[in-house]
């Protein structure tokens, strides 16, 4: 690992200021992605700004129609939250499928979405539920937040502070995990809400995407059969030693069907 300086942020705002002052600085949240990256010498930040002491970035608030999760809330906290399990069971379920217990004890929602790994789970939930990402500068709709492979709408000196999820009528997440890493080979998040149906796919492509044909079909008939014959094109999907693009396209339909069947 290359060496770097280390500081603790006193607040999200202070961390954003520090990023503005030094374009080679980086914030560290759970470190579950960043520290392995540093170990491989794939990044060389000048300074790591630790968000771990910023307590007001942690925590879950559930009001009647919204679940709000602070950026530094760990996957384990979300997975084990009785409040989240009651309001949006699919979200607690998804958080409990991330990695392994030790990863869930450290990894955070803010770190996961800011990293935007194509195989990460949370992007599916954010786009699937039509969440809003709050940052030190503004609010960004999930549809606009995830831009491309490892790329988000965040500016260099912008920090995610919380994510708000509207409570749906029913939703579920099905993932076909990579048997070694547990990242999603394909994950499909479906949700039925007052303002419509959403189907979000993670793992399959370079970035999370929606499937409008499935959303239309499920709006007319909310049942697994409605999506059974809808295939996404394998054009541009990921292809690697774990799964070909064609296989991933096939899995999208299978996972979508199962997610609708499991929705609660």
């Amino acid at each position: 690992m290359y060496n770097f300086e280390y500081t603790k942020a006193s607040s999200a705002g202070a961390a954003a200021e520090a990023l503005k002052a030094d374009e080679d600085a980086k914030v560290v949240a759970g470190g579950m992605t960043l520290i392995p990256t540093l170990k491989q010498r794939l990044a060389q930040p000048s300074t790591l700004i630790d968000l771990n002491g910023v307590d007001d970035l942690r925590g879950i608030t559930v009001t009647g129609d919204t679940v709000t999760i602070g950026a530094m809330t760990t996957h384990d906290t979300v997975a084990r939250s009785a409040e989240v399990a009651k309001a949006i069971p699919a979200l607690a379920h998804l958080a409990g499928l991330i990695g392994d217990p030790a990863v869930r004890n450290r990894g955070t929602i803010g770190g996961s979405i800011s990293n935007n790994d194509p195989a990460a789970d949370y992007p599916g939930a954010l786009v699937g539920l039509g969440a809003t990402v709050k940052t030190t500068k503004r609010e960004i709709a999930a549809d606009d937040f995830f831009v491309d492979l490892f790329e988000t709408a965040l500016e260099e000196d912008e920090i995610v502070t919380e994510v708000s999820f509207p409570v749906p009528e029913a939703a579920w997440y099905m993932k076909f995990p990579n048997p070694a890493s547990r990242y999603a080979i394909v994950g499909v998040f479906v949700a039925k809400a007052k303002d419509g149906v959403r189907v979000a796919v993670t793992g399959a492509g370079p970035c999370v995407f929606r499937v409008p044909e499935m959303e239309q079909a499920l709006s007319s008939s909310w049942s697994p059969d409605a999506v059974a014959d809808i295939k996404v094109s394998d054009d541009g999907l990921n292809s690697d030693i774990h799964a070909s693009a064609e296989y991933r396209a096939h899995l999208v339909t299978v996972m979508a069907k199962r997610a609708v069947a499991g929705a609660k």
């Binding site: 280390y6 560290v28 470190g31 579950m32 520290i35 392995p36 790591l48 630790d50 771990n52 384990d76 217990p101 030790a102 990863v103 004890n105 450290r106």
Partner: peptide, 13 residues
């Protein structure tokens, strides 16, 4: 009190 991977945490943390 919680389990975590000591290879993925900085000593200063």
């Amino acid at each position: 009190g919680t389990s975590l991977k000591s290879c993925t945490m900085l000593a200063v943390q």
